[in-house]
Write a protein that binds this DNA or RNA. Structure first.
Lengths: 340, 340
DNA sequence: ATGATTTACGAAAACGGTTTCGTGTTGATA
DNA sequence: TATCAACACGAAACCGTTTTCGTAAATCAT
C-alpha cells in the first residue's frame, strides 16, 4: 500500500526545505532551474497531489457546496441537482447532499453540521415541516455567519437570501386559461396543504384566471391531498361528487393517479375531462394518455442556483451585493391529456 | 455578521491558553472546576463549534464518503443513494456525490479529486464507458492507497474490493421460468450492450432458463438498445419481424416503451404478449397496464454498501479483512403485464 | 522545614499546506 | 577592494484543532 506522499516527504528525500518544495511545485521564479526540475520530476514520479483538507484549512475555502433537499427519489429535485452538480463541478466545486426527508429537525441538524466549516455555501429547498412551522432560525444563523445561501423552488420571503423560483402563479393562470379556451367550465385544482408556498401560489393563479373569466371559486372543486400516503377513495369521492371537466394538479403523481381513477370511472381523457400537471417528468411522457405538463426546467434552476451561489462565494466579502430573486419561466408541454 | 468563534478567540477573551480551552470543552479532569465552568459557559454563549476542517486534518478522518454514480435522474440510483445517505448520516457521515454521466473521464477526474483527502471512502457504480473500456486503473489506485471502496450493481471482477450486487442471473432465470409456466414459447430479451455486466448476467439467466426448457436461443429474439436516444422504429421492426409472446426487459423504460409500441400495433397485454421489466420504479406502478417488475431493492443495496464501507473505514488499518461480495435478492412484483 | 505529590495549567508539536521575510552566496559595479 | 543587487533557498508563522509533556504552585507526609 503506497500511502499518499506529502511535501515533507519530498523535502526529506531531496534534502531541501518544505517551502522550497512548495514553491518549486508552483513553478515559482524564486527557485533555481535544477532544483525545480528535480523536485517536479520527483513529485510526478510519486504522483504527488496536495491534500485538499490542508488546503481548505489554509485557504478557508473548502470548494464544497452543501445541497439540502427534502427528497432525492423525486424527479424534480434530481433534475435540479443535476444542474447544480454540473455547474459546480465545472467550477471546481464538489457537492455534499443531505436529504431532510421533509423533516424540520433533519434539516436543522444537517445545516448546522455542514455550517461548521465543511462547505462554502448552501443551496436548499425547504422541507414541508419547515414551511409549516415557519421556523427559519437555522437559515438566519447561516446567513448571519456570512455563509452564502440560495433557496430554490420552496423558498420563503422571511429568509433574506438569493432565491430561484418558478413563475408559479403566472403559469397556473396560463394553464387554467388554456382550459377555458378549450371550453372547459368546471375546472378543479388538486393540490397539497397551503403551507407549501408553491401550492399557494399555484392556487392563486388558478383563482385569478377563474375570477377573470367571471367564474366563482367553488371549494368543492379543490382537493387537498397529503404529499405521501394518498388515499384513493378520497380521490374517487372527489370526482364523483362534482361535475369536473378539467383538472390542474400541482404535481405529476397527483395527475397520474387522478387520471387512472377517472378512467376507471369511465371517463374519457381528454374528451370528457382534461388534465394538466406540474413537473414534466418521466411519468408524463409514458403514461396513457400522455400528460400535458408544466415543465419546471429543474436543470436550469439548478444551474442558476449554483451560479448565484458561487458568484457570492467568490465575491470579496466586503462588497455589498443585494439579494436577488431569479424567476424561471415554466413552459406548458402539450400532450394527449388536453385538446389543442 | 458574527463570524465563527475559535478556540483561540475564547482563550484570548478569557486569558487562558488554547490548550486549556480545548481540554475544558472536553470536560477534561485536568482543568479546575471554576475554569471549566467559565469556559464552558462562554463557549455556549457564543455557540462555539469546532471547525470540521481542522478536525479532519488532525484526525485524518473527514467523516465524508464519496458516491460516484453514472446518473442521478434515475430511479434505481436515487433509491440506492437514499439508502446510503440514511445509513451514513445516522453514523455521522456526510455524502459527497459526483455524477460520472456514463463517462470514463469524468469518473476518473472525480475519483482522483476526491481521493486527495476529501473523503474516507468511496461507493461507486461504474459508468458505461468504464465498463466498455475495462479500464480500472483509477480504482486500483484508490485501493492501493488504502482508501476503502465499495462497488454496487455495476461492479467488475477485475477490481478487488467489497461489492454489493443483485442476483441478476438467478432472477432473470426465474422471470423467464414464470413466462414458461404461463405457456409462453416465444420469449424475447430487450437489453443493452453486453459490456454492461448486469445485462450480460441477465442474458445468462434468460438463456439458462430457455435451454433448460429445451428451447433454442434465437438471436432474432434479442434486441439490443442504446441506453439513451432510443429509436422507436427499431423497436417496432423488432416486434413486427418475429412472433413474440413474452418480453423480459433489463429496465423499466425499455419495458414501458415496448409496451406502448406493441399496444399501438394492436396487441393486448398480457393476453397476446406479456412483459417483465427490471427496476420497480414509479413508471411500473402507474403505466397502463401496470408492469410486472423485478424489484432491485435499491435502498437496501445502498444501506448495505454504506455499512460495508463504514465498517472498513473504521476498522484498524492493520487488521486484515478479506473483501466480501454481498448479494441482494431481487423480488418479482406481479402486476397486470403478466398473468398469474 | 524539607522533600514528594498533586493540582492546574501552559508550551509546543503535529496534521499538510502557503507565504512572508530573512539571509548567505554570487557576480557585477564603482 | 568595498558595495550592492540578484539569486536561491530556508525559517517561521499561520489556518484550528488535539494531545503530550513540562512545570510552578499548592498540598501533603515526614
Amino acid at each position: 500500500m503506497k500511502r499518499k506522499i506529502t511535501l515533507k516527504d519530498i523535502a526529506r528525500e531531496l534534502e531541501v526545505s518544505i517551502s522550497t518544495v512548495s514553491k518549486a511545485l508552483k513553478n515559482s521564479e524564486e527557485i533555481g532551474r535544477d532544483t525545480k526540475e528535480k523536485i517536479q520530476a520527483f513529485a510526478k514520479l510519486y504522483n504527488y497531489r496536495p491534500n485538499n483538507i490542508a488546503l481548505s484549512l489554509k485557504n478557508k475555502r473548502t470548494k464544497n457546496i452543501g445541497v439540502v433537499i427534502p427528497d432525492i427519489v423525486h424527479y424534480f429535485f434530481t433534475t435540479v441537482f443535476r444542474g447544480i452538480e454540473k455547474y459546480a463541478n465545472q467550477k471546481g466545486y464538489n457537492v455534499i447532499v443531505c436529504v431532510s426527508d421533509e423533516s424540520f429537525d433533519k434539516e436543522v441538524i444537517n445545516t448546522e453540521l455542514l455550517a461548521n466549516g465543511s462547505i462554502d455555501g448552501f443551496i436548499m429547498s425547504l422541507s414541508a415541516e419547515t414551511q409549516q412551522k415557519m421556523d427559519f432560525h437555522h437559515l438566519l444563523e447561516i446567513t448571519e455567519q456570512g455563509i452564502p445561501l440560495v433557496l430554490f423552488d420552496r423558498a420563503d420571503d422571511h429568509v433574506p437570501c438569493d432565491k430561484v423560483i418558478l413563475n408559479d402563479t403566472e403559469i397556473s393562470y396560463q394553464a387554467v386559461n388554456k382550459f377555458l379556451a378549450n371550453g372547459r367550465k368546471h375546472i378543479a385544482l388538486v393540490t397539497t396543504e397551503s403551507y407549501f408556498n408553491v401550492s399557494a401560489k399555484r392556487a392563486e393563479g388558478y383563482e385569478a384566471a377563474l375570477s377573470e373569466a367571471g367564474i366563482p371559486i367553488d371549494p368543492a372543486l379543490k382537493l387537498i391531498l397529503p404529499y405521501r400516503d394518498i388515499n384513493e377513495n378520497e380521490i374517487r369521492q372527489f370526482f364523483a361528487a362534482t361535475k369536473i371537466d378539467a383538472v390542474l394538479c400541482v404535481n405529476e403523481i397527483f395527475a397520474v393517479q387522478c387520471m387512472a381513477i377517472v378512467q376507471k370511472m369511465g371517463l374519457k381523457i381528454p374528451e370528457d375531462i382534461s388534465f394538466i400537471g406540474f413537473t414534466d417528468g418521466i411519468l408524463s411522457k409514458f403514461v396513457q394518455p400522455t400528460l400535458t405538463t408544466i415543465a419546471q426546467h429543474g436543470e436550469r434552476m439548478g444551474e442558476i442556483s449554483a451560479q448565484m451561489l458561487i458568484e457570492r462565494i467568490e465575491i470579496e466579502m466586503d462588497v455589498e451585493k443585494p439579494y436577488r430573486t431569479e424567476i424561471v419561466e415554466a413552459t406548458i408541454i402539450e400532450r394527449e391529456s388536453t385538446v389543442n
